[in-house]
């Protein structure tokens, strides 16, 4: 097998909490606590989970926007998390990001032309002014904005158009991987569809890999090749799309799927409503982190943390989950059967 484009091994990011009389460290937020995954060239991996599960922190750690606590990030065979700033710079070109809020992620004092030209200049991708102008024009074509809009300011555009500018800016550096951190969440339904279609077309044309961070499972299912589900700083399940949606193998994934409201009125779906809230990542529960809300919890879950391992009853290969239920005999394991159809009522 060829090497994956991005390989993340046992990534940890703990944020210290400062406080107390002398401003010392009084504890840590265990935002990401041992996460491993990989993304192949041209592939979309989606990272899903609820707010506070650490999915955005993973994105920022991959981008090296801050130092990581432990683990390693390998981009195309080169370990980048311990690289000195000078050699990291050319690697940064290969990973770009599109943020959630198109209203705050564009500099209001820069014209669109300058927003798009900045990465091209930074990485020396154009030899002269004419080539720069041509590249900027091509980027505008790619994201389907009129070329003459380059002279306008960000405030002159709608949310969807701004998100197109954000995508064009990410493409300007000619990256191999784009991290979309809730890139379509803030958009209206009809505009969201435009941006989702654009991202899919760009991926096909340019062979981009995407790390698609989102909480919207319907969009994720539409966009992705594989899905990783996060809960409280850990990945609890990773699977090819169809395998995950047809037969989820972690109780949290199952509850997430059943909780999404679907636009089909009058259908009584099987519902799993989780009790309580997500525990604090400052003081995560012992054993399995989901045991405080899990409907199938048993004694072992409270003391022993389940590792992420291959599930024998999975629909497709490459389906892993972190749950003790899969060590039980099939008749005692409520997740041994494929429940996707009942959960989604299709």
């Amino acid at each position: 097998m060829s090497t994956p484009l991005l390989d993340v091994q046992d990534l940890k990011k703990h944020f210290p909490i400062k406080g107390g009389f002398f401003g010392g460290t009084t504890g840590h937020v265990y935002a990401v606590d041992g996460v491993s995954f990989h993304i192949n060239k041209g592939e979309t991996l989606s990272l899903v989970g609820e707010s506070g599960c650490g999915k955005s922190t993973v994105g920022k750690a991959v981008l090296q926007l801050f130092g990581i606590t432990a683990g390693q990030v390998v981009l195309d065979g080169k370990r980048i998390d311990d690289m000195p700033a000078g050699s990291l710079r050319p690697m940064r070109r290969r990973m770009q990001v599109v943020f959630q809020d198109p209203f705050s992620s564009l500099n209001p004092r820069m014209r669109v032309r300058d927003i798009l030209a900045e990465p091209i200049r930074n990485f020396g991708l154009a030899r002269n002014g004419a080539e720069l102008t041509e590249k900027v024009g091509k980027l505008m074509d790619t994201v389907r904005l009129p070329r003459d809009a380059v002279n306008r300011w960000p405030h002159e555009f709608s949310g969807g158009q701004r998100q197109r500018i954000g995508i064009a800016r990410a493409l300007a550096a000619e990256p191999d991987l784009i991290i979309c951190d809730e890139a379509v969440s803030a958009l209206d339904v009809s505009v969201k569809a435009q941006i989702v279609n654009l991202l899919q077309e760009l991926q096909e044309q340019l062979g981009l890999a995407l790390l698609f961070i989102s909480h919207d499972l319907a969009i994720v299912e539409h966009m992705t090749h594989r899905v990783a589900v996060m809960y409280l700083g850990k990945i609890v399940e990773v699977a090819p799309k169809r395998s995950l949606f047809a037969a989820p193998k972690h109780p949290y994934t199952e509850a997430l799927l059943s909780a999404v409201p679907v636009p089909m009125p009058g259908k009584a779906r099987e519902r799993i409503i989780l009790k309580g809230d997500v525990p604090s990542p400052i003081n995560p529960p012992t054993g399995c982190r989901f045991h405080t809300r899990c409907p199938y919890v048993f004694d072992r879950c409270r003391v022993e943390e389940p590792p992420l391992s291959a599930v024998p009853t999975a629909l497709e290969a490459g389906h892993t989950a972190a749950c003790h239920l899969h060590d039980l005999p099939a008749e005692k394991n409520p997740l041994a059967v494929a429940k996707g159809q009942a959960l989604l009522d299709i």
Partner: peptide
């Protein structure tokens, strides 16, 4: 248009993964 531009959960199971309908313009 609104209904057509929403991806349906479970599309990978029913094989209805089509391109999302867009409502053009603003």
């Amino acid at each position: 248009g609104l209904l057509g531009s929403m991806p349906k959960l479970g599309s990978s199971l029913t094989g209805t993964e089509t391109r999302l309908a867009e409502i053009p313009g603003l």
